[in-house]
Write a protein that binds this DNA or RNA. Structure first.
Lengths: 96, 96
DNA sequence: TATTTATAGTTTATATTGTAAACCGTATTA
DNA sequence: TAATACGGTTTACAATATAAACTATAAATA
């Protein structure tokens, strides 16, 4: 009846990060912070989890002299996001 | 950018319960247990939370000699569910 | 008619998770 | 050179989800 909701994506902040990255293709830490409105600590933790899962790729470099962390989605991330949307529909499409 | 996801609904099991109740209009504990596949303990806790929030109404009665707990959604529950769906779309409608 | 098994649910203890405060290192400004 | 800002990480704590253990009654069985 109901499909399982990937717990890694079924989290408000991680879903927000994935949502940004699926449309932008590349976003840095500050951009994600501004778009989500979450604290840096929280974002740092969630980015790490998404990265560990192989859903996003994280690159740490520099923009001028400042550090810059850039994230982009992997193919596995796109697939997981799409699966999550399909699973969600099993909960939302209640009236056909 | 992103709308807040009602944390009471953004939970796999509670969302499943709400999803059942929005289409069935009335469902008993056993039916919910069978449809969701969750344990009775978990369901009991989550039904209580939805009830406390005023999203569902819980009636305890009998079916023959056996106890029977019947749940049905309230108008507040319907509204909350609809709001949740709208909020979710802000995360999912990433490509227009 | 005791005793076991099944049913319907609740209580609780534990594990997991989310979150922000506190922190670190570097750069800029006063 | 002291203070402030920026970009992030670590951690401690709070909140949450979950199942195991339990209660109460009914039905089956020996």
């Amino acid at each position: 009846m109901f499909k399982e909701l990937n717990p890694l994506l079924h989290s408000e902040l991680r879903l927000g990060i994935m949502s940004i990255l699926i449309s932008v293709e590349e976003a840095d830490f500050v951009f994600i912070r501004e778009k989500t409105g979450a604290t840096a600590g929280n974002i740092s933790v969630q980015i790490e989890k998404l990265s560990e899962a192989g859903y996003i790729e994280v690159n740490k470099g520099f923009l001028g002299k400042r550090t810059r962390t850039v994230c982009k989605m992997t193919q596995a991330g796109v697939a997981a996001f799409e699966d999550y949307v399909v699973a969600l529909k099993s909960y939302l499409d209640v009236k056909q």
